[in-house]
């Protein structure tokens, strides 16, 4: 029976048995099974991940010692801001409060990281024009970062609404004061989010200048009864840059 198998096959079979057998022996008897255990590898990865050092302690920890500051901060605009957003990673400080001190930004260039005017920032977010806003003075001379309120009520709308002011300054409406169209109560200047200024709520308001027969000579005129009658004017025309958008 064995003799009938061609010689070549017998010889190759031996080689293959050695190769495959060697592999099997290596796989199941020589190498430790832990090498093949994906589950063990994953568990050790997770353990290694979890063992990594925490650098940011988390804002709840800070209040434990700095109770007074935390109380002040809780009432101001920065109430949702984590301490470590400004002070940097402080886990080391919590372990050794006396020798490791966290960073305390005092320079003028720090606050503008968030508060410099940038056209991509959401409207309504308080932003200043760094070059004209009290140049060279560190922010903390006037503002308490833990309770940031304007030291004096801003005189001009542009102090906060720099973007709108810049747009309006080059528009046809450049010479119209903000207060012509908006009434901003004193409360808005202190709590800008809670008390909003008014917006013109009738078509007739714009019509004072833009309706046919108005006394304003330089304003373009429309027929209020036929021109987009179902909408308020500013729903289509951007009043701070009229005629462009």
């Amino acid at each position: 029976m064995f003799e009938r198998i061609p010689e070549q096959i017998r010889r190759l079979a031996i080689v293959f048995v050695i190769v495959i057998g060697g592999t099997v022996v290596l796989r199941y008897f020589v190498l430790p099974p832990s090498l093949f255990e994906t589950r063990l590898h994953r568990e050790s990865t997770i353990q290694r991940e979890v063992a990594k050092q925490v650098k940011f302690a988390g804002t709840t920890v800070c209040g434990g010692c700095h109770e007074d500051t935390a109380t002040v901060k809780r009432k101001g605009f920065h109430k949702n801001l984590s301490c470590e957003s400004c002070h940097g990673p402080a886990a080391m400080h919590t372990e050794d409060p006396m020798t490791v001190k966290p960073f305390a930004p005092r320079k003028r260039k720090f606050c503008p990281l968030c508060h410099e005017y940038d056209p991509s920032r959401p409207t309504g977010f308080p932003q200043i024009n760094v070059t004209i806003h009290n140049p060279l003075k560190p922010c903390i001379t006037c503002h308490n970062p833990h309770h940031p309120e304007p030291p004096t009520v801003p005189r001009e709308c542009s102090a906060c609404h720099a973007g709108i002011a810049r747009t309006k300054a080059v528009s046809h409406h450049a010479l119209i004061a903000c207060t012509t169209c908006h009434r901003a109560s004193r409360k808005h200047k202190v709590s800008p989010r809670r008390v909003k200024p008014t917006k013109p709520d009738t078509r007739e308001f714009c019509g004072k200048c833009h309706r046919e027969g108005s006394k304003r000579k330089d304003a373009p005129k429309i027929d209020l009864s036929t021109h987009g009658e179902r909408y308020l004017c500013w729903e289509c025309h951007y009043p701070h840059m009229p005629g462009v958008a």
């Binding site: 997770i46 991940e49 979890v50 063992a51 990594k52 050092q53 925490v54 650098k55 940011f56 988390g58 804002t59 920065h78 949702n80 801001l81 984590s82 470590e84 957003s85 990673p89 968030c114 977010f125």
Partner: peptide, 23 residues
């Protein structure tokens, strides 16, 4: 990014979320 796995399993927030000033 691991969502700061070493933080979240301890009930902390990922570092980026922790410091985000505007939520």
């Amino acid at each position: 990014c691991t969502f700061c796995y070493h933080r979240i399993v301890k009930g902390m927030l990922p570092a980026c979320v922790e410091v985000c000033p505007t939520g």
